[in-house]
């Protein structure tokens, strides 16, 4: 019970840091996945006076992923009120060419403007439709969402850091006496602080283990999977190797820093 109390407060603080970190990672991944989805469904329509060379264009404008010609049949059908077949063939040749351009990733409004400019620099390209109104709104919404989550994550981080500093005081008080006594019998610094570092490493590991179990469970839960499927994105919620390593690293770093602060701040009482 005694040792449980010794551990719990630091473990809670560390777990909340790992939590906000991983939630932030999940949101970041979701947004990126969502952007990819948007990019897949998003395209520009370009009107050109002559047939375009897709290869040439994608080489010059790197943001483009594919160029696809739209068949003019649909437009002609609409005009098709008593025009002879011969005339239709003629119309097909004289009618400007319509193209659908796909992008590699979802562009920012500025990137979009740049692409538009580059395309219009070709004399035979007469019009580029970016559907910029819809695009901009979606993009701004996405940005807003990301900012809100960032603010939230940072607030959690700040509160946790405050918690940790409070914990630091308590630790300092608790460990100072023992470190002082050990020092009076000539214990070198490493020996005096060994318990502290052992405690902080153990706590860091416990915090990591708790977070690992929770996120492993969370990421394999059918309910969670369903939620992500519902909004049409598939992401790695918790990478058991990569995310784990980051978690363990952050947990150890914070905890060992805390112990180092105490050791460096230790002064012998007169």
């Amino acid at each position: 019970m005694k040792s449980f109390k010794n551990h719990i407060s630091l473990v809670i603080a560390l777990v909340s840091i790992l939590f906000s970190l991983q939630i932030f990672t999940i949101v970041d991944r979701s947004i990126n996945a969502y952007k990819e989805n948007l990019a897949k469904n998003y395209s520009l329509v370009v009107v050109s006076q002559k047939t375009l060379q897709p290869k040439e264009l994608t080489n010059k404008i790197t943001a483009l992923s594919s160029v696809e010609q739209l068949s003019p049949d649909g437009i002609i059908k609409k005009l098709n009120t008593g025009i002879s077949k011969k005339n239709i063939e003629l119309l097909k040749i004289t009618l400007p060419k319509f193209y659908k351009f796909k992008l590699k990733r979802y562009p920012t409004p500025a990137e979009l403007q740049k692409i538009k400019k580059e395309l219009l620099a070709y004399p035979y390209i007469t019009k580029v439709e970016t559907f910029s109104n819809t695009h901009d709104t979606t993009y701004k919404l996405l940005l807003l969402f990301k900012n809100v989550i960032s603010v939230l994550a940072i607030s959690i981080l700040l509160v946790t850091i405050l918690l940790i500093f409070k914990e630091l005081r308590i630790w300092q008080f608790k460990h100072n006496e023992r470190m002082n006594i050990m020092g009076l019998f000539g214990a070198p610094t490493w020996l005096r602080s060994a318990v502290l570092f052992r405690l902080s490493i153990v706590d860091a590991f416990i915090a990591f283990a708790v977070s690992f179990v929770i996120f492993s469970y969370f990421s394999s839960s059918p309910w969670v999977k369903e939620q992500f499927a519902n909004i049409g994105i598939s992401i790695v919620i918790f990478d058991r190797v990569y995310d784990s390593m980051i978690m363990l690293g952050v947990s150890m770093t914070v905890s060992i820093l805390l112990a180092s602060f105490i050791v460096l701040g230790h002064k012998e009482e007169v």
Binding site: E177, R178, I181, M182, G186
Partner: peptide
């Protein structure tokens, strides 16, 4: 220096007026 002081203290046996025992041991 701290190192010299630690060296000396290793060879001292001190009984403090307020005992200075480690409570958690």
């Amino acid at each position: 220096s701290n190192a010299k002081l630690n060296f000396l203290r290793k060879h001292l046996g001190i009984v403090f007026q307020d005992y200075k025992l480690v409570k958690e041991w």
